[in-house]
C-alpha cells in the first residue's frame, strides 16, 4: 500500500520534471501548427524581408521587416540605456555602497522588478511621452525612444542582479592581489573585478535583450504603433510583440492574418531560444568561476 503510494508519487515527480520540456515542445508545435499555414500563400522570404505590413488590405501584404526593425530599434535603445546604468548600479551596490544602505538599494531594485509592465506603460503614456514631445518638439511623444526608456527600466532588475552575482562570485583574492600591489579600490574594480566578471556581464546583457524583445504591453502602449520602416529613435514604431497583441483580437480565426500573427510568434520563439542558449553558456562560465573559488 505504502509502496504503491510512493510509486505513484515518484511517477508524478518524474512527469513534473519532464513538464518543462513537454511545454517547450508543445509551445513550439502549436506555433508551428498555426503559423506554418501562412506559408501556403505567402513566400517565406516575402514574410521575413517584406517591407510592407498591410495584413487587412486587399491583397494583404505580410512583410514583417518593419516590425523586426521596430523591435531592433527599441531593443537597441533600451540596451544602450540599461547596460551602462545596470553595470554601474551593480558595481555600486556590490562594491561601493555602505553596508547600511545596501539592503535598501537591493529592495529598490526588487521593487522595480515587481511593478507590472502595464503600470510602467501607463506611466509612460501620461508622463514620459509628453515629456519627450516637449524636449524634442515632436508631434507625439509615443516613439521608439519612449519604448526604449521604459523597457530599459524593465530590463534593469534582471541586468543588475545578474551582474551583481557575477561580481560577488569573483574570487576575493583577485581583488586583494590588486590592492596589495597598490591599486586604489576603483582601479581594482575596473582592472580586475569587471574583466573577471565578463561572462556574467555578457549573460546579463543577453537576458536583458531577451526581456526587452519579449516585452509586450508597455511597448504596445507607448511606441506609437506605426508599422513602418523606422529610421530614427524619435519615430513611432511597432514591435513584433505589440503587433501580435494589437491585432490578434481582430484577426479572424483561420484567416491568413491569424496565421501570420502565429508566424510572428515562431520568429519570437526562435529569437528568445537563441538568446537564452547564449545567456546560459555565459552563465555557466560565470558559475564555473564560482566553483573554482570554492
Amino acid at each position: 500500500m505504502k509502496n504503491l503510494f510512493e510509486f505513484i508519487v515518484e511517477k508524478a515527480i518524474f512527469l513534473s520534471g519532464a513538464a518543462s520540456i513537454i511545454f517547450v515542445v508543445l509551445i513550439f508545435i502549436f506555433l508551428l501548427k498555426e503559423g506554418l499555414a501562412l506559408f501556403g500563400e505567402v513566400n517565406f522570404f516575402a514574410f521575413l524581408f517584406g517591407q510592407n505590413w498591410y495584413p487587412i488590405s486587399d491583397p494583404p501584404q505580410f512583410g514583417i521587416l518593419p516590425l523586426i526593425m521596430g523591435s531592433v530599434f527599441v531593443t537597441f535603445g533600451a540596451i544602450v540605456i540599461a547596460v551602462p546604468l545596470g553595470l554601474a548600479a551593480a558595481i555600486y551596490i556590490s562594491e561601493v555602497a555602505p553596508h547600511s544602505i545596501r539592503g535598501f538599494l537591493k529592495s529598490g531594485i526588487e521593487l522595480l522588478a515587481a511593478i507590472p509592465s502595464i503600470v510602467l506603460g501607463f506611466i509612460g503614456i501620461i508622463f514620459l511621452a509628453p515629456l519627450l514631445k516637449n524636449i524634442f518638439h515632436l508631434g507625439s511623444g509615443l516613439t521608439a525612444l519612449a519604448g526604449s526608456i521604459m523597457l530599459a527600466f524593465m530590463a534593469l532588475p534582471t541586468i543588475v542582479s545578474i551582474i551583481e552575482d557575477a561580481i560577488v562570485s569573483v574570487p576575493r583574492s583577485y581583488k586583494e592581489g590588486a590592492l596589495a600591489l597598490g591599486a586604489t579600490h576603483w582601479q581594482a574594480i575596473y582592472r580586475v573585478t569587471i574583466p573577471a566578471a565578463a561572462s556574467g556581464i555578457l549573460a546579463a546583457v543577453m537576458l536583458g535583450i531577451g526581456r526587452v524583445v519579449g516585452e509586450t504591453m508597455a511597448v504596445l502602449m507607448i511606441t506609437g504603433n506605426a508599422a513602418i520602416m523606422p529610421t530614427s529613435l524619435l519615430q513611432p514604431v511597432r514591435t513584433l510583440t505589440a503587433t501580435v497583441a494589437a491585432e490578434m483580437g481582430e484577426a479572424v480565426s483561420g484567416s491568413s492574418h491569424y496565421y501570420s500573427l502565429f508566424a510572428i510568434g515562431i520568429v519570437l520563439f526562435i529569437i528568445s531560444f537563441i538568446i537564452n542558449i547564449f545567456a546560459d553558456i555565459f552563465l555557466h562560465r560565470s558559475k564555473a568561476m564560482k566553483r573554482r573559488k570554492k
Binding site: I27, F30, L31, G214, G265, S272, N276
Partner: peptide, 9 residues
C-alpha cells in the same frame, strides 16, 4: 525566456 505574448498565442 519565452515572451509573454507567445504564451498568449
Amino acid at each position: 525566456g519565452i515572451p509573454s505574448i507567445v504564451y498568449g498565442l
